[in-house]
């Protein structure tokens, strides 16, 4: 096994054995989305109108929930020192850990999202666009979040600080993610939104491992 897949496999195995983290993220996602019909009222037209925004905002918050632990656990048990010294470049380590995190949270959100969208009376065109937009958008969320997690490693109450750092950076993904679904529902061109989401993913894929690795090197000093 290559060293990259070794790290992905270890984090997947840890997530699988712990279980609680992934379950919590999905449960949070579903619970918050279910609160909206209760708060806004049962008017299906209004629910359909707000459903893209509700699902995306809830997904943003849910994906942030478990980010705090992304590097914190390795920092606390000394693994981070060894990863920094290891023969795999730290940028690749950040990418591997982000991939494992996305597989155990982002993927689950994508599976849960269509069910919630149905609950909120979203149309079939919207559903397909939502899943595709989330496939492109949620990896960016994890990657941006990884930088925030790396910056707040070792900080007390890192979770609150993390959300302050990361949420503003989530805005472009939110805008074009919701935009894609809205465009699909109203029969307009969806392609531009997907292209921008793809561009955001390409950008974060290159930049965030560099920023995350730099932050982790600072953290072990």
């Amino acid at each position: 096994m290559s060293r990259f897949t070794l790290i992905v496999a270890r984090d997947l195995r840890l997530a699988l054995r712990r279980g609680a983290d992934s379950t919590m993220v999905v449960t949070f996602f579903i619970l918050i989305a279910v609160l909206f019909p209760l708060g806004v009222g049962p008017d299906t037209a209004i629910l359909a109108r707000i459903s893209p925004g509700v699902i995306w905002v809830t997904a943003l918050l849910a994906s942030m929930l478990s980010l705090e632990r992304l590097f914190q656990a390795d920092f606390e048990d000394g693994s981070l020192d060894l990863l920094v010294l290891g023969s795999l470049p730290l940028e690749a380590v950040v990418l591997a850990k982000s991939l494992a995190h996305w597989l155990t949270t982002g993927m689950l959100l994508i599976v849960a999202a269509p069910v919630l969208a149905l609950l909120l009376n979203m149309s079939a065109e919207g559903l397909i666009a939502l899943v595709l937009a989330m496939l492109l958008g949620t990896p960016s969320l994890t990657l941006i979040g990884a930088v925030g997690a790396a910056l707040t490693v070792g900080a007390r109450r890192g979770g609150a600080l993390l959300s302050l750092l990361v949420l503003p950076l989530y805005v472009p993904v939110l805008i074009f993610g919701v935009g894609a679904v809205d465009a699909a529902i109203s029969g307009m061109a969806v392609r531009p939104h997907f292209l921008i989401l793809g561009a955001l993913l390409a950008g974060t894929l290159v930049l965030t491992p560099l920023a995350g690795a730099a932050a982790l090197r600072q953290a072990v000093q």
């Binding site: 270890r10 195995r13 840890l14 054995r17 712990r18 606390e76 048990d77 000394g78 693994s79 020192d81 060894l82 920094v84 010294l85 290891g86 023969s87 470049p89």
Partner: peptide, 20 residues
């Protein structure tokens, strides 16, 4: 990086995962 590749470091912390 070359230096990191020729050393093994053992700190105060063990780098051991309880779940593995």
């Amino acid at each position: 990086e070359a230096h990191g590749a020729r050393l093994d470091y053992l700190g105060h912390l063990d780098g051991v995962k309880g779940l593995l």
